[in-house]
């Protein structure tokens, strides 16, 4: 009897513990490594940073290690405007992209949710179809479309809209295009999920109570879809801030996004401590929207109770 219940509690502990174990191994441990790196100094050595923890020296080794940690990485970060500019640019691109994604994705999600039931799986598949091709290849494809003698300019010249082929590549337009294109499914799907659950008779009820359709959109549809909008915005904003591939392949090299700066510090300058400090600050910046979202979420759940 007691053996069974003991076994039961162990099984329970295991199922509850597994996700935590996952978080510890794949999030907390790497995070601690990066955190420790961010307080180190660069060195021409292998590995390219100091101090190293000498476990053989025991307690004294640990004391030496802690004493040798510095804030130099962070100091550099805030003294050179290049890094601040990089953060601001990332946040700006992420914010604008998210707004554009919202404007584009909402009608798409709405259209799918209001389409006949039997068409909906097909339409959802169409939205996620690009995932069948590797991300990198899709971004490369945009290069061939946007380059000076690429598809876009060919069409523009043919229709006579422009006389000189404009440069598309290495512009902000190209970056925004790539972002919106790549992240669209992440915005459409959560919004669709909330709209799909919405009872259509709510709109009729609104009309019945004297509310014309355009007003019902703002007073009924949008508030009900808000959790999906928040989820989608978060799913897009956070990865876009740290995006590397799209600005690297489609953007110009004069202003870098934080992902590119990080890459440069890490691989070109071999400055692991500064790269790590960059990553830690980025994490703190991204924590803000996540915490706001969490708050909204718990409030919504409490209200539902």
């Amino acid at each position: 009897m007691s053996a069974i219940s003991e076994k039961g509690t162990w099984a329970r502990r295991l199922t509850i513990g597994l996700p935590y174990l996952w978080l510890v191994v794949f999030f907390l441990v790497p995070f601690l490594i990066v955190l420790r790196l961010s307080f180190s100094q660069t060195a021409l050595a292998q590995p390219p940073y100091l101090p190293l923890l000498d476990l053989a020296a025991g307690w004294e080794g640990l004391q030496d290690f802690v004493a040798a940690l510095t804030l130099d990485g962070y100091r550099l970060l805030f003294s050179d405007s290049i890094y601040i500019a990089s953060y601001l640019r990332s946040l700006q691109i992420a914010a604008f992209s998210t707004v554009m994604l919202l404007i584009l994705a909402f009608p798409i999600a709405y259209g799918i949710a209001r389409a006949p039931r039997r068409w909906q799986p097909l339409l959802v598949t169409a939205v996620i179809l690009p995932f069948w091709t590797a991300f990198l290849i899709r971004v490369y494809a945009w290069i061939t479309i946007l380059q000076r003698d690429g598809l876009l300019n060919e069409v523009l010249m043919m229709t006579g809209l422009v006389s000189e082929p404009p440069a598309w590549l290495a512009t902000d337009t190209a970056v925004y295009l790539g972002m919106v294109y790549s992240y669209l499914p992440f915005m459409v799907l959560p919004i669709y999920a909330t709209l799909e659950k919405m009872d259509e008779s709510l709109i009729e009820a609104a009309a019945d109570l004297g509310c014309p359709p355009w007003k019902a959109f703002w007073t009924v549809t949008l508030p009900i879809a808000l959790p999906g909008v928040f989820a989608g915005a978060l799913l897009c904003f956070i990865p876009i801030v740290g995006e590397f591939v799209i600005p690297d392949l489609l953007g110009s090299s004069d202003t870098l996004m934080i992902g590119q700066t990080l890459w440069t510090e890490f691989f070109s300058n071999k400055d692991w401590p500064v790269a790590s400090a960059l990553a830690i600050v980025l994490l703190c910046v991204l924590l803000v929207p996540i915490v706001i979202y969490q708050n909204l979420q718990t409030r919504a759940i409490e209200e539902r109770r």
Binding site: S201, L202, A206, L209, P212, I224, L226
Partner: peptide, 20 residues
């Protein structure tokens, strides 16, 4: 005339209360 301009009101079978 559209529903929102009729002095007629309806109670829906599903009630259609606004959840938000």
């Amino acid at each position: 005339g559209p529903p929102y301009r009729r002095p007629v009101n309806m109670m829906f079978q599903s009630y259609a209360l606004f959840p938000h």
